[in-house]
Design a binder for these strands. Structure first.
Lengths: 238, 238
DNA sequence: AAGTGGTCTAGACCACTGC
DNA sequence: CAGTGGTCTAGACCACTTG
């Protein structure tokens, strides 16, 4: 039984399709809100709800007094910002590896936790994952990831290939919508320095992340320690 | 003459203020949309518009059948969106100041430059701007900004109030579309440490940025040094 | 059953941009 | 000036969660 999509979502998908297929050229104007409203037999409020999603995705921009301009015709926009490690590097000539140091399950989340899990997440317990990423043989990132034990049966079995986000999306239809993060420069504890093959007192980049997903009350938490002596952490967002 | 803010924006700021100040505890529920609607004498549609902004910022999450849960109450600097420094802090209880250390013009860009300016930018020369941002009296960020001398006549005269991005947008219709950035943890030079009132060897967060604008062949370049001992740098992507 | 957020309608007036 | 997006009202019905 297919449930029919909300009107605003149908409009959103139709327009997105038009943009991605090239039928609506980059740089051109979308039909006005009033026209879309008439054409789709929905009110302007509903049209705006659909357009808003396109704005959020970076496909269009609204120009007061003018209309909605198509400013992009490619997908992957929002995703570039928090691509996983492997995806970021796969298009470079650099060789990269990921080493799983620990994987496990615990009923009790670490405490104090860098972002407080929600009550139901706390109750569910979590999977944890400790990984070391290296580029050209040099360790660059130590990653501690925590995933609630909710709605992800057989998680580790499904994750054998190592791509966390791909697994979540394919097996459980969990998609990352946003990332909230906190960045600091710190003196890392000895144990972490050793993993990153750094000498004492080398500054380390510390990032705490909370990923928001399309699943209500389900977040992924990561704490990253980065050796930025050779490679910096870069990102691109809009 | 103060222009009065839209109702949804007033609601948004009021709630954000409440969350940041701790008056509305993390983990608690916001008043329901109906109640906010009644309390502020606005319709529910307008309430939803205001709440939506809080969702986008990662302060609350909506739970179907439950309400709006406060999931974040950080008092950190959400600087990586391209809102400027002042805009980020204006609705928090934290007091912030900006001190202009240097402003000037030079025909020759610094070299080597952290992101290479384009040929025409190089030829045009640049304005430079050195500013120190403080929160609650503590210096948190030393900012070096470089702007091409192209299409921005009387730039410094127009920028007296200190809001760089607002000036660019209002006076010159230049809007920031995207940001490319590079982040590292470093040992900062003595001169920079001193400005940030840090002792020797304290790790410093260093960010190099290239802002892409709606104006062709016009970029803004910034190099930021952040004292993250007290406040971390935070952001959210979507 | 009662309350919440999710979707939607049918209007209205305003500020802004272009001609 | 006409047309655009920005804001807003006063309703309505639905799906979902909890007691």
């Amino acid at each position: 039984m297919e449930k029919t999509l909300p009107h605003y979502k149908k409009l959103h998908l139709a327009l997105r399709q038009g943009i991605l297929s090239g039928a609506i050229a980059k740089g051109s104007l979308l039909p006005s809100e009033n026209e879309l409203s008439a054409r789709y037999n929905i009110t302007r409020a509903t049209v705006r709800q659909g357009l808003q999603e396109l704005v959020r995705e970076g496909f269009i921009e609204k120009r007061m007094g003018i209309g909605s301009v198509v400013v992009n015709d490619r997908k992957t926009l929002g995703l570039l910002t928090f691509k996983g490690f492997s995806e970021v590097l796969e298009s470079t000539p650099l060789s990269s590896t990921t080493q799983n140091l620990k994987m496990g399950t615990t009923a009790v989340w670490p405490s104090p936790f860098f972002y407080e899990p929600t009550a139901s997440e706390k109750e569910a317990g979590c999977f944890f994952l400790e990984r070391l990423r290296s580029v050209e043989g040099h360790p660059v990132m130590l990653e501690f990831t925590y995933i609630p034990q909710k709605g992800v049966p057989n998680f580790f079995e499904n994750m054998e290939n190592g791509s966390l986000f791909a697994t979540l999306q394919q097996e459980y239809k969990i998609e990352i919508l946003k990332v909230l993060q906190d960045v600091r420069a710190i003196h890392a504890p000895e144990a972490i320095l050793k993993r990153l093959e750094l000498i004492d007192n080398t500054p380390v980049l510390h990032i705490n992340r909370k990923y928001l997903t399309n699943t209500s009350d389900f977040h992924i938490y990561s704490s990253l320690y980065c050796n930025t002596t050779k490679y910096s952490i870069s990102n691109f967002f809009n």
